[in-house]
């Protein structure tokens, strides 16, 4: 402790404390933003309710989706004969799949498209907000902002966004709830053409109530008497009812925590002001002290050995 005098120690601690105070103040200011309260769907959030017990697999929604969204039907697998996507893909925003259990003979169709999560991982991860929740909670894509990093594909728990791997100007393709025709048609193409009402469009709260009413009136019909999407990953605006386990339909088993919740360590001010400032302050404090040791040593080495400093 001989070289590091008391005064010096006090100054070190003092500077550290003052930077910490600045950072702390910023952290306090940002505290409301940092609060980890789960996000709620907007009051006017819209979505869809898909009831697998009502779907007859006619694919009218698949054909209509392609038409309304001006996509080229994916005929690659069928050699040009049919629109026959193996899954959602850059030409397919909506697909009907078939689950068939060979042992029990149990079958179910499932319609897959964007779930329009209440707190979507894709939106949280998108570096320039190319994917963002727009009016009525619809998750839409903006080509001016997208850098094509495909983080949305990595982060989406439902594996919905698809990337145009073969295009020079590749887009991220996914269901946007037909937001471009919503004002005109009042609903997306798929719900408009569904002949059985297996998929219906509406406000999320009303759809949820409807789904629960269906469960109440037909006890034992639906898997676990549960609405998928009510709470999964913090809730989704597209809801599912099914008579077979949801994971059999490719809907993953998810906790109730929104996926981005695990990455929100404080708000912008904490992350980009308070934390770096405190860190910088601490580093600078140590650095300047050691810099003085370094300078003394440089002078000594030069005197002893005639060598210039090498930073």
């Amino acid at each position: 402790m001989s070289l590091l005098s008391r005064r010096r120690l006090l100054r070190t601690v003092g500077t550290g404390l003052s930077t910490a105070a600045v950072g702390g103040a910023a952290a306090v200011a940002a505290a409301p933003a940092a609060a980890a309260a789960p996000r709620e769907a907007p009051a006017d959030a819209v979505g869809m309710l898909y009831d697998a017990t009502k779907c007859i697999g006619c694919k009218a929604c698949v054909a209509e989706c392609t038409k309304v969204n001006d996509l080229a039907p994916d005929t690659e697998l069928s050699g040009g004969l049919w629109q026959m996507p193996a899954d959602l893909n850059p030409q397919t925003k909506n697909v009907i799949k078939l689950y068939a259990d060979e042992a029990t003979g149990r079958t179910s169709f499932v319609k897959r498209q964007c779930m329009h999560c209440v707190d979507p991982a894709c939106v949280s991860g998108c570096p320039f907000n190319a994917l963002a929740k727009g009016p009525q909670g619809i998750v839409g894509w903006d080509g001016e902002r997208c850098i094509g990093c495909r983080y949305c594909e990595v982060s989406c728990p439902f594996e919905i966004p698809k990337f145009e791997w073969k295009q020079f100007n590749p887009r991220i393709v996914k269901c946007e709830l037909c937001r471009h025709v919503l004002a005109r048609d009042g609903q997306p193409g798929c719900t408009r053409v569904c002949p059985t009402g297996a998929v219906v469009f509406g406000r999320r709260d009303l759809l949820l109530a409807d789904a629960k009413a269906r469960i109440a009136t037909s006890p034992g019909v639906y898997h676990q008497d549960r609405v998928y999407g009510e709470k999964e990953a913090g809730g989704t605006q597209v809801l599912y009812l099914s008579h077979v386990p949801f994971e059999k339909l490719g809907l993953p088993t998810l906790s109730e925590r929104a996926i981005p919740a695990g990455t929100r360590h404080g708000g912008v001010l904490v992350k980009f002001v308070a934390f770096p400032v405190v860190l910088y302050g601490v580093f600078l404090r140590f650095f300047r002290r050691n810099w003085k040791v370094h300078e003394a040593e440089v002078a000594r080495v030069k005197a002893e050995q005639g060598l210039e400093e090498q930073l």
């Binding site: 069928s78 026959m84 799949k97 078939l98 689950y99 059999k248």
Partner: peptide, 17 residues
């Protein structure tokens, strides 16, 4: 086929890629 429509076959829940 200039206006292809969906086939009567269904994709698997998880196709191989």
């Amino acid at each position: 086929v200039p206006a292809p429509t969906p086939s009567a076959q269904y994709p698997e829940i998880r196709p191989e890629t």
